[in-house]
């Protein structure tokens, strides 16, 4: 897949939505005790922007994504997509989870078709499924079942399943976390290329600082649980980015410091 330059990407119409997270706090009840997970999170994401969330494990990143997806409602605060309050799941905001969670009883094609089928528009839109499978390079596996796929292929199917809905906001929860490093690097560039081509707003959770820096316009660093925003760092480098870029290396050091890991650098 060819990675386009940032200049080229601008010529495509941005379809991304604006995402506003305003004063969001959330907690879970566990055995009668209240576990605070998010603490007054405020974040405004511009249409078509690529934002990465970094934070210690268990701090509440996935919870925040579930709120964005509309799978849960925040205890305090509100989330808005293009000024409209998010009150439930909607195919304009699709999530790719860390586990591909493909439906094992469906073939690759049928898994990708899931969203269109659920919305009742599959009959007239079958070509969209074919196109997006082509896009992620799995045309020859369209009739395979999930147990016949490798981890990277399964994650690509999960990505295709999200993209077929033409989402305005793509929510990614450590989607490359379980892949080997080579597949991971390849899929990072594919992701950037897709984002540039389609123009959706992207919210990516990752535990890999380098991944965040290579992919995102902005990197948000979260604190320990309950998660607060510790830093909001604009990366401001053109794509394609190089892992050896000294500017990125400087940011990396700063972020690791924020995460309390400066000694390891």
């Amino acid at each position: 897949m060819v990675v386009q330059s940032a200049a080229e990407a601008i010529t495509y119409p941005a379809v991304g939505a604006e995402l506003d997270i305003e004063g969001v706090s959330h907690a879970f009840d566990i055995d009668g005790a209240v576990l605070p997970v998010l603490d007054n999170v405020n974040l405004a994401i511009a249409p078509g922007e690529f934002v990465a969330l970094l934070g210690p494990s268990g701090c509440g990143k996935s919870t925040l994504l579930r709120l964005v997806a509309g799978l849960e409602k925040p205890r305090i605060g509100s989330l808005r997509e293009d000024e409209a309050r998010i009150s439930g799941p909607h195919p304009s905001r699709v999530v790719v989870f860390q586990d591909p969670t493909l439906f094992p009883w469906r073939t690759v094609w049928d898994n990708v078709a899931l969203g269109l089928e659920a919305q009742g528009i599959l009959k007239t839109q079958r070509h969209r499924v074919d196109d997006v499978i082509e896009l992620v390079g799995l045309s020859s596996f369209r009739n395979a079942y999930p147990h016949q796929l490798s981890g990277g292929m399964a994650q690509r199917v999960a990505l295709a399943r999200a993209l077929v809905n033409d989402p305005k906001i793509l929510v990614l929860d450590e989607p490359l976390g379980k892949l080997d490093s080579l597949t991971r690097i390849a899929m990072q560039s594919e992701l950037v290329a897709l984002w540039q081509r389609k123009g959706f707003t992207t919210l990516l959770v990752t535990h890999d600082v380098e991944e965040a820096l290579v992919l995102a316009n902005r990197v948000i660093v979260l604190s320990d649980r309950p998660a607060r925003i510790k830093a909001d760092i604009a990366v401001g480098r053109p794509y394609p980015r190089h892992r050896g870029d000294p500017h990125l290396a400087g940011l990396r050091k700063q972020i690791l410091g924020l995460l309390g890991l400066e000694a390891t650098w």
């Binding site: 799941p89 905001r93 969670t101 659920a118």
Partner: peptide, 21 residues
């Protein structure tokens, strides 16, 4: 697994779809 329901719901599935599919 509730993960299957989460996936289907974010893709726009209604309750009948969740049961049948």
């Amino acid at each position: 697994s509730s993960a299957y329901y989460d996936v289907a719901r974010t893709l726009g599935a209604k309750p009948s779809f969740l049961v049948l599919k």
